[in-house]
Design a protein around this nucleic acid. Structure first.
Length: 331
DNA sequence: AATCTATCCAACCGCTTTTAA
DNA sequence: GTTAAAAGCGGTTGGATAGAT
């Protein structure tokens, strides 16, 4: 016999939340914070279990939620992060300010998956979909063009190799293992003097704090913001995740931007002290990044290994592109 | 206008991880 | 070190709604 949920056991209310319930929960959290979720329903006068309250708050009532349709940038970022992280929805959502894991997951399942399949890409593996007959007879010299999502690039597996690797000095000599080295130009919002462009480095989906510090100046300790944000803890764990465990995270392993508030800015010296990381992530222009990456690759008549795929590039120009080692992780 | 079908998304379920006693 | 409770997470379900017939 199936185990009954806590709501069943306690005969608590289930299903959609009424506006009155939302108001009670909002008022309670506004006054007292959520504290221990299991005590929230009682204190707030709700006939719900704490778990249900928590979910309602995180997914719907939190004031910092960005609702509405996903932008193209967000979509591109989700696809890219999914290729790196898999179904780690909380970690993916943590990179999308104002989005919840549930929202990202729903968007993936209802929209992106379908779109990738239409373009001949397996959403689970980010590889070109297997075509039974073709797969059996495919050779490494076969050129297969497929539409991909990043900038509608053509995917052309070939045999030569181009390496895109623009590591900062701090990366030299460090074992990179399977991680990806990427230089990503970010637009850093800096108070007072507009937007400052600073390079930032991404490895296997994790931002390297050494590199950040090198290019952004010293990053002062940031006070932990006591909030119900679901994203902060997940990104902290991301710092400790396998992808990041090998030299990718600065000593201490913390990722300061995790705990940043929404309105933090730079200090007088232009040092980033606030949510520039989150803001920069929000401003990532993946399509532009890929465009430039592929242009560089094109000039070298690069190629993909069989089975590799890539997102990005120009619409009408077949892109020959490959990177050694871990960039296959992107697919 | 009525019915059917597909899609979306809020919420639930159950498992895992973390925390506190 | 052990155990129980709480929190976090990802997969799944089911109701609401839009569009098609």
């Amino acid at each position: 016999m199936a185990k009954q949920s806590c709501c069943h056991k306690k005969k608590l209310r289930r299903g959609l939340w009424s506006p009155e319930e939302d108001e009670k929960l909002m008022n309670h959290i506004a006054k007292y914070g959520h504290g221990c979720w299991s005590s929230v329903p009682k204190l707030a006068g709700l006939d719900r279990c704490g778990k249900s309250c928590r979910l309602r708050w995180i997914n719907y009532l939190r004031p910092d939620l960005k609702r509405g349709t996903f932008s193209q940038e967000e979509e591109d970022l989700i696809i890219h992060l999914h290729s790196l992280l898999g179904n780690k929805w909380s970690q993916i959502a943590a990179q999308l300010p104002g989005r919840t894991d549930n929202e990202v997951k729903n968007f993936w399942n209802s929209y992106i998956k379908k779109r990738l399949r239409e373009r001949g890409i397996d959403p689970a593996t980010h590889q070109p979909l297997a075509e039974p007959a073709a797969a059996a007879t495919a050779t490494t010299t076969t050129t297969v063009s497929r539409r991909a999502v990043f900038g509608d690039v053509d995917l052309i597996p070939t045999t030569t190799t181009t390496t895109i690797q623009v590591p900062p000095p701090s990366f030299e000599g460090g074992p990179m293992l399977e991680s990806v080295k990427l230089a990503v130009e970010l637009d850093w919002p800096v108070a007072g003097d507009g937007v400052t462009s600073r390079p930032c480095y991404l490895q296997g989906g994790c931002f390297d704090m050494d590199a950040l510090q090198q290019h952004c100046g010293s990053i002062p300790p940031v006070p932990v913001v006591p909030s119900a944000s679901a994203s902060s803890s997940t990104l902290t764990s991301m710092a400790e995740a396998e992808h990041c465990s090998t030299n990718n995270v600065a000593a201490g392993g913390n990722l300061p931007w995790l705990e940043l508030g929404a309105n933090a800015v730079a200090d007088a010296g232009g040092h980033v002290v606030g949510s520039c990381y989150a803001g920069a992530l929000d401003e990532l222009r993946w399509s532009e990044y890929f465009d430039s990456a592929f242009q560089a690759a094109e000039s070298q008549q690069g190629a993909l290994q069989p089975g590799q795929c890539v997102y990005g590039g120009k619409d009408d120009v077949p892109v020959h592109f490959d990177v050694h080692g871990g960039l296959s992780n992107w697919c």
